[in-house]
Design a protein around this nucleic acid. Structure first.
Lengths: 248, 248
DNA sequence: AGATCAACAATAGTCCGACAAATAGCGGCC
DNA sequence: GGCCGCTATTTGTCGGACTATTGTTGATCT
């Protein structure tokens, strides 16, 4: 099988893509990335299901399930006769983790990163303040453990980055606010994609661990305002690093 | 057709439900609402596709597409052999408009409402401040027009509520921040479901229009801090109203 | 007895082909 | 010129077959 020649137009689903998941997921990812990257503009109409599925060499069912995924995330809208068209950007679930990951598949525009950081700057400091008010002993333990690991692994290693994620995750959990948790973890995860950029940029700015400790201390002491400000510095620092490494 | 007897167990898809949309959408809504309302707990395994689709009297394709929608929103996860299980709450996209609407299908818990307002209190005032910095003339016009309508329609009429929505929407658009826009509009829409409650509670608190004007004036004058504070009062007021009408 | 590995079974995943329903756009009719 | 019904196109739904993945179980080996 797989004797089919490469078609002229772009949309091919690699058999390797499929390896990392189900077929419909791979199709959704491919199409989704094409949409958020602007290859399909809002208002554009996708080729109809029959043709599209034939071009991708997949069954119509698989293709349809992919479309349902995209529709669930607000990227497209389907109607009989009209077809499936890309929705206006205002309907996109920009904070859905998958949608965000599709943005980061082809380096997102600087302005989008800017907006993401702006939102993060609004949300995370407030989250830190809430955490200072509500954290329990177990959560504090988790934060401390994460920072200890982070301290002598640094952000260069996989373990160090995992510890960083774990620290922030513990802070969010401590807010005891479900919606806030899902929100910040989406942004955080997305923004941490940029860590890849940061790391491949030669000079790794300055050590972020001390600033993390300041956040921790404030949360442990139950000082809301102090926690908010410490987190603000942390986010600002991260933004600076990212900006610097993108100019480079 | 439709001679089918009502089965014993709960999950029936009404033919009327389908009228307002496609079949898979109706199934997703029904199942989604059952999940967020706790009828299916995280970790629970849904009955397999064959049985489920038979019980609902729909094709397996339609049922599967519904599951894809739920999976896209993080509510469930499917794997061969294991089946489809409800994901841990931390994975749910709590800020997806549809997921929120499912919450409000069976009155959400008071604590959830609380968390939503808490998040709104973090985000909307910040949005107002940004709007004060970036609004253009057209957006100001839109806000003013909305408030004028709101003024002599009051929130009791459909037109008045639409004007309210339009005002907030214009403010968000003026932030020029896509992610922030989708976020706040989700929360706003959800929270406005509660307007239905508020209205059916006899005494409609106090007139919110003057407070809206204060927000508008601050944004028009470009005063960020003032806009933030005015919006804070607005949200606080709304929270009080909601709380009062729930106790009633 | 314990660990390792192979066969099995259950379930989601994919494919196919047909038919149904909705509707935008067209053409005819009044 | 406007209204109305027809039709073609596209998504939506259906049913059934086959595939792939994987947890489980049981046999085999150490």
């Amino acid at each position: 099988m797989a004797k089919a020649r490469g078609e002229e137009a772009g949309g091919e689903i690699e058999r390797e893509d499929v390896a990392s998941g189900r077929l419909h997921g791979a199709i959704a990812r491919s199409l989704g990335a094409a949409i958020v990257s602007g290859k399909h503009q809002p208002g554009d109409i996708l080729t109809n299901e029959i043709e599209a599925s034939e071009r991708l060499q997949v069954s119509r069912s698989a293709y349809r399930e992919a479309i349902r995924i995209l529709a669930a995330k607000g990227l497209v809208e389907s109607r009989p006769k009209t077809g499936t068209r890309v929705s206006p950007r205002a309907r996109w679930r920009l904070l859905d983790p998958e949608v965000l990951s599709w943005f980061f598949e082809s380096e997102p525009s600087e302005s989008f990163l800017q907006e993401l950081y702006e939102l993060r700057m609004i949300v995370e400091p407030a989250a830190a303040a809430l955490a200072a008010k509500r954290r329990d002993q177990g959560q504090l333990e988790r934060m401390r453990a994460a920072l200890v690991v982070m301290q002598h692994e640094t952000l260069a290693t996989e373990a160090g980055q995992a510890a960083d994620r774990d620290f922030h995750d513990a802070v969010l959990e401590a807010t005891a606010n479900g919606p806030l948790y899902t929100l910040s973890s989406s942004i955080g995860a997305a923004v941490r994609w940029t860590t890849i950029f940061k790391q491949r940029s030669r000079n790794l700015a300055r050590d972020p661990v001390p600033d993390h400790w300041k956040v921790f201390d404030a949360i442990a002491a139950g000082r809301e305002d102090q926690a908010r400000e410490a987190m603000e510095r942390l986010v600002t620092l991260a933004l600076d690093d990212t900006r610097a490494s993108m100019k480079a």
